[in-house]
Design a protein around this nucleic acid. Structure first.
Length: 658
DNA sequence: GTAGGGTTAG
């Protein structure tokens, strides 16, 4: 009997051959194979190699090697199971489940139709190719299963965003007498960590922790890393550290999971100190490590720290691949350096859709609508297909830059790409129309929407009413927001501002009363500025800073200078009723003004001042900052929750759209 | 034959 593919060992090395003839094992050679089966073409006979891929390649240099099955059928040969394994591996690697189905059909007609190891490999092929229905059907059909069968399907669900399906299999497998191993537990833990909310993660995760501990799996590096990741995703960093500390063997994945946990919580300092500790213990940071840290720098707007970590990437000589590069680009954009973001984009080794979307977002955040439109066109020209996020970024960019016609055009063009606009797209269009002052059109647009408008949709209209001082429509929009989301402080403040700007103080007081009654608390506004690696934070009317006397004095001096060139305080931005003079005093001590005065006192002349704020910059501060940039001849960059404002020589990059 | 960590919007 000849086998078409086989595996054999010679002098301790594993070889793969087309033929295996038992009595020839001691004098095996290429020539010998050919002489036993002379009808086999010469390129087949020379296929004694160490590398499985090379073997399949030589069977069919340009394809998968699948045609060897035709040969098997033609000659009525009995394939060795290694052939099936190799072919299935190849289909998995190439992500070609259709070819895998051909192998499946062949297996079903062979002696191995009930072989659990081969069927597990087949199951894994379907799972890795994302054919979960095929995998499930095969699983259900398998009369003999083992623990690997169960683990393979659990992993399939866990890796394809079906955590509940994965977790549900665990009690079933136990009740049928299959005992899990470390592979099963790490997949189950990954599934629990992907559940939609923290209590659910903790509920399932902690039980799996107990199970792992009882079986001694918790000291396995895979199980340990999944465990600490699970705790980190619940925000339980103490538990995550505990799991990490007791893990006997750590690797870069365990480190990365811990660093990512802190990074997600915005704890940049802790993420960075772990990064340094990791380096000191001779673990090599990976793209995962850098990606997490850049993400944390982006969310905290920490440009200096981000640059420092970027220098590490450069020093380590690694290429800037898309995954890490996208986060790096995002970090530069969100920390206020659009030039650096563009530079990273240009230098990316391979750009994917996320890279383009991130660049569009960068332009949107900086109010560069025309650049975003050009970027989108370039993306289409190279043949990339946009997705829903692409349009969201593009529409946001149009809205922020006041590109009304372009925004409407691109919104309509979404259907051409088979993308159904989601609620976020509708919000952006309401924003676009509203900012442009087309309040009636915005309202009509909302009424004609095919999906139910949410609080965000009405909130966008409310914001536009604030901008264009439309009290009636503003209060109508606010009512709708309060019905849908009664606990958000933002709309309450907006409505109160709308009333205040129309001098309707009684109505403003009513809003305040409503806030009090429904327990809605306004987030305290704060601004922060970094001077010489120290972050200084300010809240309105703050007097806790040691330099406060000098700061107040500085602002009074600046305030007098900007009034000389035309600044008029806009007191409608004060929430409460008080007389005009009191309101002006209140305005003077908004946190961003204190931060600016502090920065002017403590940074070199001519240097750029970067201020961050936890809520949107107030209209009066926005106006004042324009004048300040002219008077002191410096660039001031303010990052608020929405976007960046680059103040320079008396104007702002946002063109008063924000 | 089966396993863990990272990206864009809001």
């Amino acid at each position: 009997m000849s086998f078409i593919v086989s595996k054999f060992k010679c002098k301790g090395i594993t070889f793969f051959s087309l033929l295996h003839v038992t009595h020839y094992s001691s004098r095996f050679s290429t020539a010998a194979v050919a002489s036993i089966e002379p009808k086999i073409p010469p390129d087949f006979s020379s296929c004694i190699v160490q590398d499985k891929d090379l073997l399949l390649k030589s069977l069919n240099p340009s394809g998968t090697g699948l045609h060897v099955l035709d040969l098997v059928d033609e000659r009525s040969l009995e394939p060795h199971p290694t052939l099936y394994h190799l072919l299935l591996k190849k289909c998995t690697f190439l992500r070609k489940p259709k070819l895998g189905k051909i192998v499946h059909a062949h297996i079903s007609n062979s002696l191995f139709r009930g072989d659990v190891v081969i069927l597990n490999t087949l199951l894994n092929m379907y799972a890795r190719c994302g054919c979960l229905d095929d995998a499930r059907n095969l699983f259900d059909e398998m009369s003999v299963k083992d623990m690997v069968t169960w683990t393979t399907l659990i992993t399939a669900y866990s890796q394809h965003d079906r955590p509940l399906d994965a977790l549900l299999m665990f009690p079933q497998m136990l009740s049928l007498g299959f005992f899990p191993n470390e592979f099963t537990l790490s997949s189950l833990l990954k599934a629990s960590a992907a559940l939609p909310d923290t209590p659910q993660i903790y509920f399932h995760g902690a039980q799996l922790h107990g199970f792992s501990f009882k079986c001694g799996f918790h000291s396995n590096v895979y199980v340990g890393s999944s465990l600490l990741d699970m705790y980190a995703r619940c925000g339980c960093m103490d538990e995550a550290h505990f799991v990490f500390d007791v893990l006997p063997t750590k690797n870069e994945v365990s480190w990365n999971a811990l660093i990512a946990g802190h990074a997600r919580k915005g704890q940049l300092d802790r993420a960075l100190s772990l990064f340094l500790k990791m380096l000191r213990q001779d673990f090599q940071p990976t793209h995962f490590t850098f990606s997490s840290i850049f993400g944390a720098c982006a969310s905290t707007g920490s440009l200096e720290q981000g640059k420092w970590v970027h220098a590490h990437v450069i020093k380590s000589g690694g290429e800037i691949i898309a995954f890490m590069g996208n986060t790096l680009l995002h970090m530069y954009a969100k920390s206020g350096s659009i030039q650096d973001a563009k530079m990273i984009f240009d230098r990316l080794v391979k750009r994917d859709l996320v890279s383009w979307n991130s660049m569009l977002t960068a332009y949107a955040q900086h109010g560069l609508g025309k650049e975003a439109v050009q970027c989108f066109q370039k993306m289409l020209n190279i043949g990339l297909v946009p997705n829903d996020i692409t349009f969201l970024c593009l529409l946001t960019a149009c809205s922020r830059a006041g590109l009304l016609e372009e925004g409407q055009y691109y919104f309509k063009s979404m259907k051409r790409y088979n993308i159904e606009p989601g609620i976020s797209h509708y919000v952006t269009i309401v924003d676009l129309l509203g900012r442009a002052g087309l309040l009636n059109e915005a309202l009509r647009f909302i009424n004609e929407m095919p999906i139910q408008p949410t609080a965000a949709v009405w909130g966008a209209l409310l914001g536009a009413c604030r901008m264009h001082k439309n009290v009636e429509m503003g209060s109508f929009a606010a009512e709708r927001v309060f019905e849908l989301d009664p606990h958000d402080s933002g709309p309450h403040v907006l409505l109160s501002n709308i009333y205040a700007s129309g001098n309707r103080w009684r109505d403003a007081a009513k809003v305040r009363k409503l806030m009090k009654e429904s327990g809605v608390k306004k987030e305290p506004a704060c601004s922060w500025v970094e001077i010489q690696n120290t972050v200084h934070m300010f809240v309105a009317s703050d007097d806790s800073h040691p330099q406060m006397g000098a700061i107040y004095k500085k602002w009074e001096e600046i305030s007098a200078r900007i009034k000389e060139i035309g600044y008029v305080p806009d007191t409608s931005h004060v929430l409460f009723y008080m007389d005009e003079q009191e309101r002006e005093v209140k305005l003077q001590y908004h946190s961003e003004k204190l931060a600016l005065a502090f920065a002017l006192l403590n940074s070199p002349d001519g240097s750029t001042i970067r201020i961050k704020k936890n809520i949107r910059v107030c209209g009066d501060c926005h106006s004042a900052f324009k004048f300040v940039s002219k008077v002191v001849g410096r660039e001031i960059i303010v990052r608020d929750t929405n976007r960046f404002h680059h103040f320079y020589d008396g104007s702002c990059s946002c063109g008063n759209f924000w």
